[in-house]
Amino acid sequence: MKSAAGGAILAVLALACLAAPLLAPDGPAAATAGAFEAPSAAHWLGTNGQGQDVFAQLVWGGRGSLLMALSVGVGTTLVAVLVGLLAAYFGGLADEAISLVVNIVLTVPGLPLIIVLAAFLPPGPATIAMVLIITGWAFGARLIRAQALSLRQRDFIAAAKVAGERPLRVIAAELLPNLWSVIAAYLCGQVVFALTAGSALEFLGLGDAGQTSWGTMLFWAQNDSALLQGAWWTFVSPGLAIALTAGSLALLNFALDAATNPRLRAPGGARRATEVLRHG
């Protein structure tokens, strides 16, 4: 139910962005009316300070924002899974070296570093995506490593070795299928994080202000003093779009959590019963 709602919201948003050339054939940059016109039949979400149609900006800009968020999500997840699995499976020195790097990256304060890096690199969504991947993979690697470590102790991994499977095959065919729910949940979380963090960077002016995205829409709304003009539609629209995307992914995530195999959870029946006995 939750997953269906989340999926439906996400699908509508993504389809609208994909269909941008049909929904707003003039493109996001065309100044088609006066500045700060309120929503009307001609301009569903009004216009911004440059006289550009907010709806057109929203659907065109969503392409950049969602693509950036998705690439960051997929990128960090790939790195995290690869690093986490290798560390967990091979253990020993490899694990210690990897864990050291992971812990160093984890202690680096994320957001300030992001701002510094984004300020020195050429602006644009690709830079933001790269910065977010560099700073974002470590936590996931630790998460995957911990999960994989507990799975590695299980006898089915030893059984696969006894059967004669090679290490990479054990990782890919025996470990990985048991991690899908964790990986999917992490991916959802990373996409949400990338969308909000990326938009925040763009809002701060660290993106490419010439390209349309939900973050730059907010940047321009701020720049054009939309708040003072009372043009709420210029910032509420992209803000709501970001919030809706994040919310739908969170709903998807809930569903994934519930679907996680309950057999993997530890029983605590005896302890609970004893606590009840003890304290009434």
Binding site: R154, A158, A163, N178
Partner: peptide
């Protein structure tokens, strides 16, 4: 491996749930 095989104690742990 083709000559020496093993059966483990816990049939719940020795088969891959996935």
């Amino acid at each position: 491996r083709s000559k020496v095989q093993m059966v483990f104690q816990d049939p719940f742990g020795s088969l891959n749930p996935a």
